[in-house]
Design a protein around this nucleic acid. Sequence first.
DNA 1: CGGGCCCTTGAGTGTCCTCAAGTTATGTGG
DNA 2: CCACATAACTTGAGGACACTCAAGGGCCCG
Lengths: 243, 243
Amino acid sequence: MKMISCHDCPLHDCGPFIPHSEEEKTFLNGFKAGEMSVEPGTQILLEGSNAPQIYTVLEGMGLREKTLEDGRRQVINFVLPGDLLGLQAGIMGEMQHTVEAVTRMRLCVFRRESLWTLFRNRPELAFDLTWIAAAEEHFLGETVATLGQRGGIERVAWALVKIFLRLRGLEKGTKEAVPLPYRQQDLADALGLSLVHTNKTLSRLRAKRLADWSAGTLRVPDVAALAEVAMTDPEALPRRPFL
Amino acid sequence: MKMISCHDCPLHDCGPFIPHSEEEKTFLNGFKAGEMSVEPGTQILLEGSNAPQIYTVLEGMGLREKTLEDGRRQVINFVLPGDLLGLQAGIMGEMQHTVEAVTRMRLCVFRRESLWTLFRNRPELAFDLTWIAAAEEHFLGETVATLGQRGGIERVAWALVKIFLRLRGLEKGTKEAVPLPYRQQDLADALGLSLVHTNKTLSRLRAKRLADWSAGTLRVPDVAALAEVAMTDPEALPRRPFL
DNA sequence: CGGGCCCTTGAGTGTCCTCAAGTTATGTGG
DNA sequence: CCACATAACTTGAGGACACTCAAGGGCCCG
Protein backbone atom coordinates (compact mmCIF):
# COMPACT_ATOMS: atom_id res chain seq x y z
CA MET A 1 0.00 0.00 0.00
CA LYS A 2 1.56 3.25 -1.09
CA MET A 3 1.43 6.26 1.18
CA ILE A 4 -0.64 9.07 -0.18
CA SER A 5 0.62 12.64 0.06
CA CYS A 6 -1.57 15.13 1.87
CA HIS A 7 -1.68 16.96 -1.44
CA ASP A 8 -3.79 14.12 -2.79
CA CYS A 9 -5.78 13.47 0.39
CA PRO A 10 -9.12 11.89 -0.52
CA LEU A 11 -10.84 14.05 2.09
CA HIS A 12 -10.11 17.21 0.14
CA ASP A 13 -12.97 18.40 -1.99
CA CYS A 14 -15.09 15.90 -0.16
CA GLY A 15 -18.37 17.44 0.87
CA PRO A 16 -18.17 18.68 4.40
CA PHE A 17 -14.47 19.42 4.78
CA ILE A 18 -12.84 22.82 4.57
CA PRO A 19 -9.83 22.39 2.29
CA HIS A 20 -6.32 23.36 3.36
CA SER A 21 -4.12 25.82 1.54
CA GLU A 22 -1.16 24.45 -0.43
CA GLU A 23 1.14 25.71 2.27
CA GLU A 24 -0.82 23.94 4.99
CA LYS A 25 -0.82 20.75 2.98
CA THR A 26 2.95 20.86 2.77
CA PHE A 27 3.23 21.42 6.51
CA LEU A 28 0.81 18.62 7.29
CA ASN A 29 2.66 16.29 4.99
CA GLY A 30 5.80 16.73 7.07
CA PHE A 31 3.63 16.15 10.10
CA LYS A 32 2.40 12.83 8.76
CA ALA A 33 4.22 9.79 10.11
CA GLY A 34 2.66 7.18 7.88
CA GLU A 35 -0.42 5.27 7.01
CA MET A 36 -2.10 2.29 8.56
CA SER A 37 -4.65 -0.26 7.44
CA VAL A 38 -6.56 -2.33 9.95
CA GLU A 39 -8.90 -5.29 9.71
CA PRO A 40 -12.45 -5.34 11.08
CA GLY A 41 -12.45 -5.90 14.84
CA THR A 42 -9.06 -4.30 15.45
CA GLN A 43 -8.77 -2.09 18.52
CA ILE A 44 -7.07 1.04 17.23
CA LEU A 45 -6.90 2.88 20.55
CA LEU A 46 -7.41 1.43 23.99
CA GLU A 47 -9.24 3.00 26.94
CA GLY A 48 -6.69 3.87 29.61
CA SER A 49 -3.75 3.65 27.26
CA ASN A 50 -1.37 6.44 26.41
CA ALA A 51 -1.02 6.05 22.67
CA PRO A 52 1.86 7.92 21.05
CA GLN A 53 -0.14 8.49 17.91
CA ILE A 54 -3.15 10.31 16.62
CA TYR A 55 -5.04 9.33 13.50
CA THR A 56 -7.33 10.74 10.88
CA VAL A 57 -9.71 8.28 9.28
CA LEU A 58 -9.29 8.14 5.51
CA GLU A 59 -11.62 5.22 4.78
CA GLY A 60 -13.83 2.78 6.61
CA MET A 61 -15.99 2.87 9.70
CA GLY A 62 -15.56 2.12 13.39
CA LEU A 63 -16.85 2.76 16.88
CA ARG A 64 -15.83 4.72 19.95
CA GLU A 65 -16.86 2.80 23.04
CA LYS A 66 -16.49 2.66 26.80
CA THR A 67 -16.78 -0.43 28.94
CA LEU A 68 -18.09 -0.36 32.51
CA GLU A 69 -16.46 -2.44 35.22
CA ASP A 70 -19.05 -5.19 34.93
CA GLY A 71 -18.80 -5.45 31.17
CA ARG A 72 -21.70 -3.31 30.01
CA ARG A 73 -20.72 -1.46 26.86
CA GLN A 74 -21.61 2.06 25.77
CA VAL A 75 -21.02 3.12 22.20
CA ILE A 76 -20.05 6.77 22.36
CA ASN A 77 -20.11 7.54 18.68
CA PHE A 78 -19.84 6.13 15.20
CA VAL A 79 -16.46 6.75 13.57
CA LEU A 80 -16.50 7.81 9.92
CA PRO A 81 -13.95 9.16 7.42
CA GLY A 82 -12.57 12.54 8.42
CA ASP A 83 -12.79 11.82 12.13
CA LEU A 84 -9.77 12.49 14.32
CA LEU A 85 -8.84 9.74 16.76
CA GLY A 86 -6.64 9.97 19.83
CA LEU A 87 -6.84 13.69 20.45
CA GLN A 88 -7.65 13.04 24.12
CA ALA A 89 -4.51 11.01 24.64
CA GLY A 90 -2.57 13.58 22.62
CA ILE A 91 -3.72 16.42 24.83
CA MET A 92 -4.62 14.92 28.19
CA GLY A 93 -2.28 11.96 28.17
CA GLU A 94 -4.75 9.11 28.34
CA MET A 95 -7.57 7.72 26.22
CA GLN A 96 -10.95 7.65 27.91
CA HIS A 97 -12.55 5.32 25.41
CA THR A 98 -11.63 2.55 23.01
CA VAL A 99 -11.77 2.90 19.23
CA GLU A 100 -12.50 -0.23 17.26
CA ALA A 101 -12.67 -0.86 13.52
CA VAL A 102 -15.93 -2.28 12.22
CA THR A 103 -14.97 -2.44 8.58
CA ARG A 104 -11.49 -2.45 7.14
CA MET A 105 -10.09 1.03 7.73
CA ARG A 106 -7.32 3.17 6.37
CA LEU A 107 -5.81 5.71 8.76
CA CYS A 108 -3.46 8.64 8.46
CA VAL A 109 -0.93 8.54 11.32
CA PHE A 110 0.65 11.46 13.20
CA ARG A 111 3.08 11.46 16.06
CA ARG A 112 1.78 12.97 19.22
CA GLU A 113 4.80 15.21 19.83
CA SER A 114 4.13 16.93 16.53
CA LEU A 115 1.17 18.53 18.23
CA TRP A 116 3.52 20.91 20.00
CA THR A 117 5.09 21.97 16.75
CA LEU A 118 1.63 22.58 15.40
CA PHE A 119 0.60 24.75 18.31
CA ARG A 120 3.82 26.74 18.12
CA ASN A 121 4.02 27.25 14.38
CA ARG A 122 0.51 26.98 13.01
CA PRO A 123 -2.00 28.89 15.09
CA GLU A 124 -4.74 28.43 12.50
CA LEU A 125 -4.32 24.68 12.56
CA ALA A 126 -4.24 24.71 16.36
CA PHE A 127 -7.49 26.64 16.20
CA ASP A 128 -8.93 24.01 13.89
CA LEU A 129 -7.94 21.34 16.38
CA THR A 130 -9.81 23.13 19.12
CA TRP A 131 -12.72 23.52 16.73
CA ILE A 132 -12.78 19.77 16.30
CA ALA A 133 -12.71 19.19 20.04
CA ALA A 134 -15.52 21.70 20.56
CA ALA A 135 -17.57 20.06 17.81
CA GLU A 136 -17.15 16.69 19.48
CA GLU A 137 -18.30 18.22 22.72
CA HIS A 138 -21.36 19.62 20.97
CA PHE A 139 -22.27 16.26 19.53
CA LEU A 140 -21.89 14.54 22.88
CA GLY A 141 -24.13 17.17 24.41
CA GLU A 142 -26.84 16.23 21.95
CA THR A 143 -26.30 12.59 22.73
CA VAL A 144 -26.69 13.24 26.44
CA ALA A 145 -29.96 15.04 25.76
CA THR A 146 -31.13 12.12 23.64
CA LEU A 147 -30.32 9.43 26.19
CA GLY A 148 -31.71 11.53 29.00
CA GLN A 149 -34.93 12.80 27.46
CA ARG A 150 -36.00 10.88 24.38
CA GLY A 151 -38.03 7.68 24.41
CA GLY A 152 -37.22 4.55 22.43
CA ILE A 153 -38.55 5.37 19.01
CA GLU A 154 -37.28 8.93 19.22
CA ARG A 155 -33.80 7.72 20.07
CA VAL A 156 -33.61 5.32 17.18
CA ALA A 157 -35.00 7.88 14.76
CA TRP A 158 -32.56 10.49 16.06
CA ALA A 159 -29.57 8.23 15.59
CA LEU A 160 -30.63 7.22 12.09
CA VAL A 161 -31.13 10.84 11.06
CA LYS A 162 -27.73 11.83 12.40
CA ILE A 163 -25.77 9.05 10.78
CA PHE A 164 -27.72 9.26 7.57
CA LEU A 165 -26.90 12.93 7.18
CA ARG A 166 -23.27 12.35 8.03
CA LEU A 167 -22.92 9.59 5.48
CA ARG A 168 -24.78 11.45 2.80
CA GLY A 169 -22.58 14.46 3.45
CA LEU A 170 -19.59 12.25 2.78
CA GLU A 171 -21.18 11.37 -0.55
CA LYS A 172 -21.45 7.75 0.32
CA GLY A 173 -24.40 5.99 -1.28
CA THR A 174 -27.26 7.77 -2.98
CA LYS A 175 -29.75 10.42 -2.00
CA GLU A 176 -32.01 7.86 -0.33
CA ALA A 177 -29.71 5.05 0.74
CA VAL A 178 -26.34 4.87 2.45
CA PRO A 179 -24.16 1.93 3.50
CA LEU A 180 -24.36 1.20 7.23
CA PRO A 181 -22.27 -1.85 8.10
CA TYR A 182 -22.92 -1.93 11.85
CA ARG A 183 -24.86 -4.49 13.88
CA GLN A 184 -28.15 -3.73 15.62
CA GLN A 185 -26.29 -4.43 18.85
CA ASP A 186 -24.00 -1.47 18.13
CA LEU A 187 -26.94 0.87 17.71
CA ALA A 188 -28.56 -0.55 20.85
CA ASP A 189 -25.39 0.07 22.85
CA ALA A 190 -25.18 3.58 21.46
CA LEU A 191 -28.72 4.40 22.52
CA GLY A 192 -28.85 2.62 25.86
CA LEU A 193 -31.57 0.27 24.66
CA SER A 194 -31.64 -3.52 24.67
CA LEU A 195 -31.00 -5.37 21.44
CA VAL A 196 -34.51 -6.79 21.43
CA HIS A 197 -36.17 -3.45 21.90
CA THR A 198 -33.98 -1.81 19.29
CA ASN A 199 -34.92 -4.51 16.82
CA LYS A 200 -38.63 -4.05 17.46
CA THR A 201 -38.31 -0.29 17.19
CA LEU A 202 -36.50 -0.59 13.86
CA SER A 203 -39.38 -2.78 12.70
CA ARG A 204 -41.86 -0.11 13.63
CA LEU A 205 -39.97 2.52 11.67
CA ARG A 206 -39.82 0.15 8.72
CA ALA A 207 -43.55 -0.50 8.91
CA LYS A 208 -44.19 3.24 8.90
CA ARG A 209 -41.93 3.57 5.85
CA LEU A 210 -39.74 6.09 7.68
CA ALA A 211 -36.48 4.18 7.64
CA ASP A 212 -35.41 0.78 6.45
CA TRP A 213 -32.09 -0.52 7.70
CA SER A 214 -31.37 -4.01 6.48
CA ALA A 215 -28.58 -5.89 4.75
CA GLY A 216 -26.07 -3.21 5.71
CA THR A 217 -27.96 -0.45 3.92
CA LEU A 218 -29.97 2.36 5.45
CA ARG A 219 -32.81 3.73 3.35
CA VAL A 220 -34.52 6.96 4.34
CA PRO A 221 -37.07 8.14 1.78
CA ASP A 222 -37.90 11.34 3.68
CA VAL A 223 -35.40 12.69 6.15
CA ALA A 224 -37.71 15.44 7.34
CA ALA A 225 -40.40 12.92 8.28
CA LEU A 226 -37.93 10.81 10.20
CA ALA A 227 -36.54 13.88 11.91
CA GLU A 228 -40.02 14.76 13.02
CA VAL A 229 -40.38 11.46 14.83
CA ALA A 230 -36.99 12.13 16.39
CA MET A 231 -38.11 15.57 17.58
CA THR A 232 -35.07 17.16 16.00
CA ASP A 233 -34.18 19.46 13.14
CA PRO A 234 -32.74 17.75 10.07
CA GLU A 235 -30.17 20.51 9.86
CA ALA A 236 -27.36 20.06 7.38
CA LEU A 237 -24.02 19.75 9.10
CA PRO A 238 -21.73 22.77 8.94
CA ARG A 239 -18.55 22.50 6.95
CA ARG A 240 -15.72 21.59 9.21
CA PRO A 241 -11.94 21.62 9.38
CA PHE A 242 -10.04 18.36 9.59
CA LEU A 243 -6.62 16.80 10.11
CA MET B 1 -17.50 45.63 42.97
CA LYS B 2 -13.86 46.22 42.21
CA MET B 3 -12.21 44.30 39.42
CA ILE B 4 -9.60 41.86 40.59
CA SER B 5 -6.32 41.55 38.76
CA CYS B 6 -5.41 38.15 37.40
CA HIS B 7 -2.40 38.38 39.68
CA ASP B 8 -4.80 38.01 42.61
CA CYS B 9 -7.15 35.54 40.96
CA PRO B 10 -8.89 33.50 43.67
CA LEU B 11 -8.53 30.38 41.55
CA HIS B 12 -4.77 30.43 41.90
CA ASP B 13 -3.44 28.15 44.59
CA CYS B 14 -6.89 26.67 44.72
CA GLY B 15 -6.74 22.90 44.82
CA PRO B 16 -7.11 21.52 41.35
CA PHE B 17 -5.80 24.34 39.19
CA ILE B 18 -2.38 24.56 37.62
CA PRO B 19 -1.11 28.06 38.38
CA HIS B 20 0.07 30.42 35.65
CA SER B 21 3.49 31.98 35.48
CA GLU B 22 3.82 35.68 36.29
CA GLU B 23 4.27 36.39 32.62
CA GLU B 24 1.11 34.49 31.71
CA LYS B 25 -0.82 36.34 34.39
CA THR B 26 0.23 39.63 32.89
CA PHE B 27 -0.82 38.50 29.43
CA LEU B 28 -4.17 37.20 30.69
CA ASN B 29 -4.79 40.41 32.55
CA GLY B 30 -4.59 42.33 29.29
CA PHE B 31 -6.91 39.73 27.84
CA LYS B 32 -9.50 40.34 30.54
CA ALA B 33 -12.34 42.64 29.55
CA GLY B 34 -14.01 42.95 32.92
CA GLU B 35 -16.00 41.25 35.57
CA MET B 36 -19.65 40.42 35.91
CA SER B 37 -21.95 39.50 38.73
CA VAL B 38 -25.29 37.84 38.09
CA GLU B 39 -28.29 36.97 40.22
CA PRO B 40 -29.72 33.47 40.60
CA GLY B 41 -31.84 32.53 37.61
CA THR B 42 -29.95 34.69 35.13
CA GLN B 43 -29.27 33.17 31.72
CA ILE B 44 -25.61 33.85 31.11
CA LEU B 45 -25.38 32.28 27.67
CA LEU B 46 -28.26 31.28 25.40
CA GLU B 47 -28.56 28.22 23.21
CA GLY B 48 -28.38 29.27 19.58
CA SER B 49 -26.90 32.66 20.37
CA ASN B 50 -23.59 33.97 19.19
CA ALA B 51 -22.23 35.57 22.34
CA PRO B 52 -19.25 37.88 21.88
CA GLN B 53 -17.82 36.90 25.25
CA ILE B 54 -16.36 33.99 27.06
CA TYR B 55 -16.29 33.67 30.82
CA THR B 56 -14.44 31.96 33.60
CA VAL B 57 -16.43 31.31 36.74
CA LEU B 58 -14.82 32.89 39.79
CA GLU B 59 -17.56 32.18 42.32
CA GLY B 60 -20.99 30.60 42.48
CA MET B 61 -22.73 27.71 40.78
CA GLY B 62 -24.88 27.22 37.71
CA LEU B 63 -26.13 24.77 35.11
CA ARG B 64 -25.51 23.98 31.48
CA GLU B 65 -28.75 22.84 29.88
CA LYS B 66 -30.42 22.06 26.59
CA THR B 67 -34.12 22.29 25.88
CA LEU B 68 -35.90 20.01 23.39
CA GLU B 69 -38.51 21.36 21.03
CA ASP B 70 -41.37 20.22 23.24
CA GLY B 71 -39.91 21.71 26.39
CA ARG B 72 -38.19 18.73 27.99
CA ARG B 73 -34.99 19.88 29.66
CA GLN B 74 -31.64 18.10 29.85
CA VAL B 75 -29.05 19.33 32.30
CA ILE B 76 -25.70 18.76 30.62
CA ASN B 77 -23.44 19.56 33.53
CA PHE B 78 -23.12 21.43 36.77
CA VAL B 79 -21.11 24.64 36.51
CA LEU B 80 -18.62 25.35 39.30
CA PRO B 81 -15.80 27.85 39.89
CA GLY B 82 -12.97 27.47 37.41
CA ASP B 83 -15.25 26.39 34.58
CA LEU B 84 -14.92 28.09 31.22
CA LEU B 85 -18.18 29.19 29.59
CA GLY B 86 -18.81 30.06 25.98
CA LEU B 87 -15.88 28.30 24.37
CA GLN B 88 -18.22 26.70 21.83
CA ALA B 89 -19.50 30.05 20.66
CA GLY B 90 -15.96 31.40 20.75
CA ILE B 91 -14.69 28.64 18.48
CA MET B 92 -17.66 27.38 16.49
CA GLY B 93 -19.70 30.55 16.40
CA GLU B 94 -22.84 29.41 18.22
CA MET B 95 -23.74 28.11 21.65
CA GLN B 96 -25.30 24.67 21.70
CA HIS B 97 -26.61 24.93 25.22
CA THR B 98 -27.79 27.51 27.72
CA VAL B 99 -25.88 28.44 30.87
CA GLU B 100 -27.93 29.58 33.82
CA ALA B 101 -26.90 30.84 37.24
CA VAL B 102 -28.31 28.92 40.22
CA THR B 103 -26.66 30.97 42.93
CA ARG B 104 -25.29 34.45 42.65
CA MET B 105 -22.17 34.18 40.47
CA ARG B 106 -19.09 36.23 39.76
CA LEU B 107 -17.58 35.84 36.29
CA CYS B 108 -14.35 36.89 34.63
CA VAL B 109 -15.11 38.24 31.14
CA PHE B 110 -13.02 37.93 27.96
CA ARG B 111 -13.72 39.17 24.49
CA ARG B 112 -14.06 36.47 21.91
CA GLU B 113 -11.67 38.08 19.39
CA SER B 114 -8.92 37.88 21.94
CA LEU B 115 -8.90 34.15 21.29
CA TRP B 116 -7.07 34.77 18.06
CA THR B 117 -4.39 36.75 19.81
CA LEU B 118 -4.04 33.93 22.26
CA PHE B 119 -3.64 31.30 19.56
CA ARG B 120 -1.10 33.41 17.71
CA ASN B 121 1.02 34.55 20.63
CA ARG B 122 0.59 32.02 23.42
CA PRO B 123 0.81 28.46 22.15
CA GLU B 124 0.92 27.03 25.68
CA LEU B 125 -2.30 28.79 26.58
CA ALA B 126 -3.87 27.69 23.32
CA PHE B 127 -2.85 24.17 24.26
CA ASP B 128 -4.48 24.62 27.66
CA LEU B 129 -7.66 25.72 25.95
CA THR B 130 -7.70 22.57 23.87
CA TRP B 131 -6.99 20.61 27.04
CA ILE B 132 -10.10 22.10 28.58
CA ALA B 133 -12.19 21.24 25.55
CA ALA B 134 -10.86 17.67 25.57
CA ALA B 135 -11.56 17.34 29.29
CA GLU B 136 -15.12 18.47 28.73
CA GLU B 137 -15.46 15.89 26.00
CA HIS B 138 -14.16 13.24 28.36
CA PHE B 139 -16.67 14.14 31.03
CA LEU B 140 -19.55 14.09 28.56
CA GLY B 141 -18.41 10.67 27.43
CA GLU B 142 -18.75 9.40 30.97
CA THR B 143 -22.16 11.00 31.20
CA VAL B 144 -23.28 9.27 28.03
CA ALA B 145 -22.14 5.96 29.46
CA THR B 146 -24.03 6.69 32.67
CA LEU B 147 -27.31 7.60 30.99
CA GLY B 148 -27.00 4.73 28.57
CA GLN B 149 -25.94 1.92 30.87
CA ARG B 150 -26.52 2.67 34.54
CA GLY B 151 -29.79 2.10 36.38
CA GLY B 152 -31.49 4.60 38.65
CA ILE B 153 -29.58 4.15 41.89
CA GLU B 154 -26.28 3.88 40.07
CA ARG B 155 -26.94 7.10 38.21
CA VAL B 156 -27.74 9.08 41.32
CA ALA B 157 -24.77 7.65 43.19
CA TRP B 158 -22.51 8.39 40.23
CA ALA B 159 -23.62 12.01 40.02
CA LEU B 160 -23.23 12.55 43.75
CA VAL B 161 -19.71 11.07 43.73
CA LYS B 162 -18.68 13.26 40.81
CA ILE B 163 -19.97 16.51 42.19
CA PHE B 164 -18.84 15.73 45.71
CA LEU B 165 -15.27 15.19 44.54
CA ARG B 166 -15.34 18.31 42.42
CA LEU B 167 -16.58 20.45 45.28
CA ARG B 168 -14.21 18.95 47.79
CA GLY B 169 -11.37 19.54 45.35
CA LEU B 170 -12.35 23.19 45.30
CA GLU B 171 -12.04 23.18 49.08
CA LYS B 172 -15.66 24.03 49.58
CA GLY B 173 -17.13 22.59 52.76
CA THR B 174 -15.48 19.95 54.90
CA LYS B 175 -14.16 16.49 54.30
CA GLU B 176 -17.61 14.96 54.68
CA ALA B 177 -20.01 17.69 53.65
CA VAL B 178 -20.14 20.16 50.79
CA PRO B 179 -22.68 22.85 49.86
CA LEU B 180 -24.98 21.80 47.01
CA PRO B 181 -27.55 24.50 46.31
CA TYR B 182 -29.40 22.80 43.44
CA ARG B 183 -32.93 21.41 43.35
CA GLN B 184 -33.77 17.73 43.07
CA GLN B 185 -35.36 18.60 39.75
CA ASP B 186 -31.96 19.72 38.46
CA LEU B 187 -30.39 16.40 39.36
CA ALA B 188 -33.35 14.55 37.85
CA ASP B 189 -32.97 16.45 34.58
CA ALA B 190 -29.24 15.76 34.59
CA LEU B 191 -29.77 12.03 34.96
CA GLY B 192 -32.80 11.55 32.74
CA LEU B 193 -34.96 10.41 35.66
CA SER B 194 -38.28 11.76 36.85
CA LEU B 195 -38.34 14.03 39.87
CA VAL B 196 -40.35 11.49 41.85
CA HIS B 197 -38.02 8.64 41.13
CA THR B 198 -34.97 10.77 41.88
CA ASN B 199 -36.47 11.72 45.20
CA LYS B 200 -37.16 8.11 46.14
CA THR B 201 -33.70 7.07 45.07
CA LEU B 202 -32.11 9.79 47.19
CA SER B 203 -34.16 8.46 50.10
CA ARG B 204 -32.78 4.99 49.56
CA LEU B 205 -29.22 6.28 49.60
CA ARG B 206 -29.99 8.22 52.74
CA ALA B 207 -31.46 5.12 54.42
CA LYS B 208 -28.31 3.19 53.56
CA ARG B 209 -26.21 5.98 55.04
CA LEU B 210 -24.33 6.38 51.78
CA ALA B 211 -25.26 9.96 50.99
CA ASP B 212 -27.49 12.55 52.58
CA TRP B 213 -28.42 15.55 50.49
CA SER B 214 -30.78 17.87 52.28
CA ALA B 215 -31.08 21.54 53.12
CA GLY B 216 -28.57 22.42 50.41
CA THR B 217 -25.81 20.29 51.88
CA LEU B 218 -24.46 17.01 50.59
CA ARG B 219 -22.98 14.67 53.19
CA VAL B 220 -20.96 11.65 52.08
CA PRO B 221 -19.38 9.77 54.99
CA ASP B 222 -17.58 7.26 52.77
CA VAL B 223 -16.93 8.18 49.15
CA ALA B 224 -15.55 4.75 48.30
CA ALA B 225 -18.76 3.05 49.46
CA LEU B 226 -20.89 5.41 47.40
CA ALA B 227 -18.64 4.94 44.40
CA GLU B 228 -19.11 1.21 44.69
CA VAL B 229 -22.86 1.59 44.34
CA ALA B 230 -22.20 3.82 41.34
CA MET B 231 -19.95 1.18 39.78
CA THR B 232 -17.22 3.72 39.30
CA ASP B 233 -13.77 4.53 40.61
CA PRO B 234 -13.64 7.39 43.10
CA GLU B 235 -10.56 8.67 41.32
CA ALA B 236 -9.25 12.03 42.37
CA LEU B 237 -9.53 14.56 39.57
CA PRO B 238 -6.31 15.47 37.77
CA ARG B 239 -4.98 18.96 38.16
CA ARG B 240 -6.10 21.07 35.31
CA PRO B 241 -5.29 24.28 33.53
CA PHE B 242 -7.80 27.11 33.52
CA LEU B 243 -8.58 30.48 31.96
C1' DC C 1 -23.88 -30.75 7.07
C1' DG C 2 -22.90 -28.56 11.47
C1' DG C 3 -21.74 -24.35 14.04
C1' DG C 4 -21.66 -19.56 14.81
C1' DC C 5 -23.37 -14.99 14.31
C1' DC C 6 -26.96 -11.99 13.65
C1' DC C 7 -31.71 -10.88 13.19
C1' DT C 8 -36.55 -11.76 14.57
C1' DT C 9 -40.60 -12.67 17.38
C1' DG C 10 -43.32 -14.02 21.64
C1' DA C 11 -44.21 -13.98 26.61
C1' DG C 12 -43.75 -12.42 31.26
C1' DT C 13 -41.47 -9.20 34.49
C1' DG C 14 -39.76 -5.04 36.59
C1' DT C 15 -38.03 -0.43 36.65
C1' DC C 16 -39.37 3.85 36.17
C1' DC C 17 -43.17 7.06 34.87
C1' DT C 18 -47.38 9.78 35.61
C1' DC C 19 -51.01 11.32 38.40
C1' DA C 20 -52.37 12.90 42.69
C1' DA C 21 -52.30 14.50 47.41
C1' DG C 22 -49.97 16.18 51.33
C1' DT C 23 -46.09 18.25 54.00
C1' DT C 24 -42.60 21.73 54.92
C1' DA C 25 -40.24 26.05 54.39
C1' DT C 26 -40.19 30.81 52.94
C1' DG C 27 -42.01 35.11 51.73
C1' DT C 28 -45.88 38.71 51.28
C1' DG C 29 -49.67 41.59 52.49
C1' DG C 30 -53.46 42.60 55.58
C1' DC D 1 -48.83 38.32 63.99
C1' DC D 2 -51.46 35.56 61.11
C1' DA D 3 -53.66 34.25 56.49
C1' DC D 4 -52.28 33.13 52.16
C1' DA D 5 -49.39 31.96 48.15
C1' DT D 6 -45.58 29.78 46.17
C1' DA D 7 -41.90 26.57 45.53
C1' DA D 8 -39.64 22.52 46.84
C1' DC D 9 -39.72 18.10 48.83
C1' DT D 10 -42.22 13.69 50.09
C1' DT D 11 -45.15 9.64 49.69
C1' DG D 12 -48.63 6.37 47.63
C1' DA D 13 -50.94 3.98 43.76
C1' DG D 14 -51.52 2.33 39.15
C1' DG D 15 -49.80 1.92 34.49
C1' DA D 16 -46.51 1.93 30.48
C1' DC D 17 -42.36 1.24 28.37
C1' DA D 18 -38.41 -1.24 28.06
C1' DC D 19 -35.94 -5.41 29.93
C1' DT D 20 -34.83 -10.35 30.31
C1' DC D 21 -35.53 -14.95 29.01
C1' DA D 22 -36.40 -18.03 25.41
C1' DA D 23 -36.74 -20.10 20.95
C1' DG D 24 -36.56 -20.12 16.03
C1' DG D 25 -34.91 -18.61 11.26
C1' DG D 26 -31.54 -16.93 7.76
C1' DC D 27 -26.92 -16.73 6.25
C1' DC D 28 -22.05 -17.64 5.82
C1' DC D 29 -18.10 -20.50 6.41
C1' DG D 30 -15.43 -24.45 7.63
